Amino acid sequence: MSGMYQEIMAFVLTTSGWILESSTVSMDFWKVSSNDGSVITTSTFWANLWKHCVTDSTGISNCRDFPSMLALDGYIQACRGLMIAAICLGLFGSVLALVGMKCTKIGGSDKNKARIACFAGVDFILCGICSLSACSLYAHRITTEFFDPMFMSQKYELGAALFIGWAGGILCILGGSVFCFSVADSFSRSHSQANYIYRGAASHSHITAYTRGQTKPVKEGHAADNSSSSRVQHFDKNAYV
């Protein structure tokens, strides 16, 4: 029963992380212009994986989509690929988790469901790694430009989308690990139970059952001793009579 509760908790963690990762892809604020060293700020620049935008002091935003995918910087293309891979892996992991959980009625035998749940855990771990890698790569580019004294263009700060992506990746990794550990515990318990049953059967195999009135077979020497002793006992009884 505890394994079922662990799988439910892992499913909640992984599904929440996958939802956070999916929302991160379409969020606006992956990076926001830095106000460090400026006294008066008339506009705010921000960008994500798909467009550049600027917001003036009146709150009006103007955005421009990236004109060419092939002309983009390499780190933006890598982040796009990693986040799309994370979303796909999370989707497949959710389906496998629903099939492999003990509380569902699909998936076949318990052994097959345990294997499917293990695959779902590995899938979610890869999903979290992809999200963490994408957000970390984007954040590394921002921090490198910010602390580079020779970089004279607009500098940016870390946006809120990066922190949400990190949170989603961590939740997916934690939930996937719980899936794997719960499956490992169930396999170890089943193995220990089978070993106990085997040992119990082996110990009971040395005990021979005899029906009422049936004597245990003995060797010839012991049979002769028993017959002589029975005669002596019979003679003693007759002597008292």
Rank of each mutant, 00 (worst) to 15 (best):
L96D: 04
H234T: 09
A161H: 06
T58Q: 15
T41Y: 09
A78P: 04
S26H: 06
D123E: 08
H222T: 10
S190F: 11
D123S: 13
E220N: 05
Q233S: 13
S43K: 06
G93K: 01
I142C: 04
G176N: 00
Y75L: 06
S34H: 00
I197M: 15
S133R: 06
G108A: 09
G159P: 06
A85P: 03
D28V: 07
A97Y: 04
L72F: 02
W30C: 01
I76Q: 06
A97G: 05
I125Y: 05
K155Y: 00
F151I: 05
P67R: 08
D110M: 13
T208L: 12
D73C: 02
S94A: 13
D73T: 02
A134W: 02
T15P: 01
M152K: 12
F29C: 01
Q77L: 14
A114Y: 04
C79N: 10
F92P: 01
G90R: 05
H222S: 12
F66Y: 11
T143V: 07
K51N: 01
F235H: 14
G107V: 07
A224K: 14
R141A: 10
L162P: 05
F187D: 14
T44V: 09
F181I: 13
V32I: 09
E145Q: 10
W30F: 02
Y240N: 13
K51I: 05
H204W: 09
P67Y: 09
T44N: 09
K237H: 15
D236R: 13
I125D: 02
C79S: 09
